[in-house]
Structure formats: C-alpha cells, structure tokens
C-alpha cells in the first residue's frame, strides 16, 4: 500500500516537472525568436511604412540629399549622409564605374564619353527601414529600435557609441554624428511623418522617383505601385526584411 503511494507520488512529480519544464522551455523559446526578428507589427491601427524608389525616374539632381541635410541638421561636410545618390556607369568593356560626389548634392557631371557607355543610371540610397533589421539586432543597449510604425530610429540619449550598428548595416546607411557623437541615420523624417507631412527627400524629388506610404493600406499608392511593378530590394540574400523597394534595379547595384 505504502509502496504504491510512493510510486504514484513519484510519477506525479515526474509528470509535473516535465510539464513545468516544457512550459518554461516553450516560453523561453518563443522569446528567443527575438534573436532572429527585431519586431513584429503589433499595433494594427498604426501605419506600417514602406518606401519605393523608381530608378528610371531618378535624374540625379541631388535635391533629395540636399533637402535631407537641410531638414535634419546633418553637417554639410561630404562624410555624413542620411541619404545619397550614386551614379552607375557600365562601359562597353563591361567595367562598372560608380561615383557619388558629395553624395550627389551638387548634381553629377558626365565624365565618361557617350561612345564608351553601355548604360548608366542613378541609384538613390537611404535607410531601408528593415523589419528584420540587423542594426537593431546588434545594438547592445537598445539604443536603436523599430518604432511601432516600422521606422528604424535611434535613441540619441541612450546610444553609447560602440559603432556595432554601423558595422552591421549592409547598406552603409549609418554614421556617427561628429558633433553629437552618437549613431545617426535616416529617420524617414519621423518628426514630419508624425505631423502628416512627407519626408523631406520625398517632398522635393522633382520627378516623383521617391515614394513612401502605408504598406498595410491596400488602397495606398505604394501598395498599388508594388502590385503593378516588379520591384527588388538590395541584398535580398541577407534577409534583412528591407522595406525599400526599387523599381528598375539593375544587377550591378550593391
């Protein structure tokens, strides 16, 4: 009689421990998904911002890069850019020439003669506001994050300046502000978005090559555009969850 009691008690303890362990293990595993994904859009009422850049419309005027520096108090020296424009020239011999003089702010002069050019185009670059952002993943203190609207932002009061995020961004979007001495990058003009205004670069683009919008809204211009055009992101093999979609992206672009 006593032995049965002990065995059944042992059995109960065993099952209880297994169940408890499994529950703890499951909750731990669920939270460790954090390792892979930086954020999931939780608040359905907020917009989930995406960006489209149409390469065929970009004329390399540099208005976007200039406006960004004006709007966001970025030093005018040619070493810090929240957004910039590159010019790719593929010559007839197959070589690829890339330039970005002062980020394209002063425009581009054609240096290579027409006869040598196979094709040439401009590629505006900016923060891709990734939703599996590697820069957010590596920040050791939580000074960079994805806002509930899907905009990757920096907490300038918390950043310790370790520069890990700058190393982790595959697109070269981040830099250390020379005066503030913390990380800095394109914020999609979050301070303008919150007031219902367009980001500065999109406001001034003369050809409408830059677009932004709410990816959740099926009727928004951006979603319609994505439906009607074939778009690509940069470095898709790195699985960054980039929300910057390029139309007309040529295979030479990195």
């Amino acid at each position: 009689m006593a032995n049965e009691k002990i065995t059944s008690r042992r059995k109960f303890l065993k099952t209880a421990t297994v169940l408890a362990g499994a529950t703890i293990g499951y909750t731990w595993l669920k939270s460790s998904r954090m390792l892979l994904y930086a954020a999931e859009p939780k608040d359905e009422t907020l917009p989930w911002y995406g960006i489209v850049i149409d390469i065929q419309k970009c004329i390399g005027c540099g208005s976007c890069a200039k406006a960004c520096k004006n709007e966001n108090d970025v030093p005018k020296e040619p070493f810090f850019f929240r957004t910039w424009v590159e010019q790719y020239t593929i010559k007839n011999d197959g070589s690829v020439n890339i330039v970005s003089p002062n980020g394209g702010i002063d425009g581009f002069e054609q240096i290579i003669a027409n006869e040598e050019i196979f094709k040439s185009f401009f590629v505006p670059k900016m923060c891709n506001h990734c939703y599996k952002s590697p820069c957010t993943q590596v920040c050791p203190v939580g000074a960079t994050y994805e806002s509930p609207e899907g905009v990757v932002l920096i907490d300038e009061k918390y950043c310790i300046g370790c520069r890990y995020c700058v190393q982790a961004c595959p697109y070269g979007c981040r830099f250390i502000h020379p005066v503030k001495k913390v990380a800095n990058k394109c914020t999609l003009c979050y301070h303008r978005l919150k007031k219902g205004l367009a980001p500065a670069c999109m406001e001034v683009c003369p050809t409408g090559a830059r677009m932004y919008g709410n990816l959740r809204d099926k009727n928004s211009d951006i979603v319609k555009y994505l439906k009607e055009h074939t778009t690509q992101v940069l470095r898709p093999h790195l699985n960054t969850g980039s929300k910057l979609y390029y139309n007309g992206l040529s295979s030479e672009v990195r």
């Binding site: 390792l35 993943q137 590596v138 050791p140 203190v141 918390y158 310790i160 300046g161």
Partner: peptide, 28 residues
C-alpha cells in the same frame, strides 16, 4: 580599451542594466 573607444563612455553602464539579448556585445 572598450570603454575608452566608446564615443559616450560615461554611458557604458547601460550595457549592464539593459543588455539587449540579441546582441553578442551585450553579454560582454
């Protein structure tokens, strides 16, 4: 060397109080 390399070394304690579990540097 790590602390003297940071551009905000006075905030170095943050790595101890809010370590980001997905960052290898945070476990330091």
């Amino acid at each position: 060397p790590l602390i003297s390399h940071l551009s905000q070394p006075q905030r170095a304690y943050e790595i101890m109080i809010t370590p980001h579990s997905s960052s290898a540097m945070a476990i330091f």
